[in-house]
Amino acid sequence: MATGESTFAPAAGAAPLPRMIRAQAALETRMLLRHGEQLLLTVVIPTLLLVLFGGVDLVDLPGDGAGDSSRVDYLAPGVLALAVLSTAFTGQAISTGFERRYGVLKRLGVSPLPRWGLMTAKTLSVLAIEALQVVLLTSVAFALGWSPRGGAPAVLAVLLLLVAGTAAFSGLGLLMAGTLRAEATLAAANLVFILLLVGGGVVVPLDKFPDPVRGVLELLPISALSEGLREVLRHGAGMPWGELVLLAVWAVLGLTAAARFFRWD
């Protein structure tokens, strides 16, 4: 039997679930923060957009020359939406795609951490990165003279929009990561990021597009998120139910498809 000297004597068992999920979420967050290209997408690009377009008259934005609504009031909600897109969709798709490719998901699949625990940890880590992004981007926006509308109800509406957007983009990102090859995911996730940056009401107002195109673009999750945030933060609107419902539909579709088609190796 085991003695004090005996090093490998079996003492098998899973750690308590909260400890496993906390450890996994902390590791995932460290991996994302350590990844240079990810930070380019999640931090550098949104900040640059905010500073460049907010500070310099490069494109014709609503709010130009208007009395009470500055350029940054238009830009800040869109850039917050872009931050969610970059982390929950692009970043998560690429990192999960490569984790699948490098056998990380397979290896964790035989650890005591259940799959739903791994997914919970991934979500927590996405939310942690988003919190950092929101703090950074709102600080920059305030420095540029941002004056958002609304009080506590606006904060609640914004939080609900961010969570619904995160769910919608996570589902789509995981669907991509779990079905395509890692290289294809890398290319497609970046391409989608750029397309949605241009066509999702982030910097370019949707009313610049011709009507039929605009009708389609308005159904995209990024448009729902950026327009919803803009309604609340710029125009002081109440709870943006239309946008929330649209995001919830995307979330259900994306997460259901991801759960159905995700391949772990």
Partner: peptide, 21 residues
């Protein structure tokens, strides 16, 4: 494989250890 490409050796081992009782 089975390890995050950016994870350090000791970090990954410590992580797997943390999943066990």
């Amino acid at each position: 494989g089975g390890v995050y490409p950016g994870a350090r050796a000791a970090e990954m081992l410590r992580h797997i250890a943390a999943l066990h009782a």
